[in-house]
Nucleic acid binder design. Structure first.
Lengths: 204, 204
DNA sequence: TCTCCGTTCTGACATTTGTCATACGGAGCG
DNA sequence: CGCTCCGTATGACAAATGTCAGAACGGAGA
């Protein structure tokens, strides 16, 4: 009923992009109308070629896949976004769904499978990789308050408390309080381990 | 003169693997004799099918590309290793060359280009991506002694000194000395920032 | 041989961090 | 209206960390 599906392919790895173009072109009902290697390029290409589905790599120079999807949502409604990722952390999935992304799959799927998922998404349905979904559910919601998360993020590069306090415009004592409570909420040994844990679960 | 080149393809991303198989098969003189999704699998496949060139992803479950290359060096000499990587840090290149790897390229190259490089490597020549080589040269050599690097690595996950001392079988005082000297050599604020710096430069 | 350097250790000290109690104002809720 | 939670802050104390000096041993090189 829907004829061909016009697809945009955005990935900074030429190897994947070229190869995927070749494989997806084998499918009669899919046609790659544009390719991009960076976030901004993907957006520009999408606006120029108006694809039905945008297949976006999560990690791209310029702007990541979710950011591109967010922009597409307003600037090109009717175009469904589908994120592919090499090694996805739970938080990304949540962020992606919040941005209106319709599909989220790891690069470990086969091209065959990806073709099917592109059709699924084009039909207006959602598709989230079960494994990634399970991870996201297992990770659960962040127990951190927004300030705690913010301060923890500033602590990520190993900066001392005084520097964090400056950058967050807080008193050093307050920063220590937030870090302390974040550390205890996460059950970590110290703030650096806490940063690592929060990163893994996608909470920062 | 050399007939066809027998190639092993190891990458945990099914998308890349399948697609690459398709594209490289278009080249008359290349034939994919085996595929693998993990390090150990790659090794087993190599021993079973005895390829001329092993194309190895740097990041794979089980054992990374360099480890596989190291094993291949002794267990299957005559098979040349070629590493492909998505986002490579300087240190990896050095490690790879030390392991006898003959080629090192980012996944941003085209399949066409990769085919040429496979031929180059098969002919006994080396190929290293100029950009990655430049990064590696810019990063320079590690100023850390082996113990300093070792201890710094154990500190990477935010473990307290006592735990590092246990794991390294050293006295806590010694660990603090090493960390202190590593921190000052790297010009970092503290050991956590030092870990970050050393990571960036590929020194751990 | 003699010296330098890396490894390992100890002890001492100052600084930073982690924890806790306590306090106050504001937002949301029953 | 009280209650609770969050954000913010201070002060105090204990623990961890960073820095320094010194010392012993062994190997590599001048």
């Amino acid at each position: 009923m829907s004829g061909v599906v016009r697809v945009l392919l955005a990935d900074d790895e030429h190897l994947i992009r070229g190869a995927l173009t070749a494989l997806l072109s084998l499918e009669d009902d899919l046609v790659i109308v544009a390719e991009a290697a960076t976030g901004p390029e993907a957006l520009a290409m999408a606006l120029a070629h108006r694809p039905d589905v945008a297949v976006l790599d999560l990690q791209m120079p310029g702007a990541d896949g979710v950011k591109v999807a967010t922009s597409l949502r307003t600037e090109l409604p009717g175009c469904q976004a589908l994120i592919v990722t090499s090694h996805g952390r739970p938080g990304h999935l949540k962020r992606a769904l919040a941005a209106g992304v319709r599909g989220f799959v790891p690069k470990t799927v086969s091209a065959q499978r990806l073709a099917e998922i592109i059709r699924t998404v084009h039909a207006g349905n959602r598709y989230v990789d079960p494994e990634l979904a399970a991870d996201a559910i297992a990770a659960g919601d962040s127990p951190l308050t927004s300030r705690e998360a913010e301060v923890l993020e500033l602590a990520a590069d190993g900066a001392p408390v005084t520097e964090i306090a400056e950058r967050a415009a807080l008193s050093p004592g307050t920063v220590r309080n937030y870090l302390s409570s974040a550390v205890s909420k996460l059950g970590a040994e110290n703030r650096h381990a806490a940063v690592r844990l929060a990163r893994e679960r996608g909470w920062v």
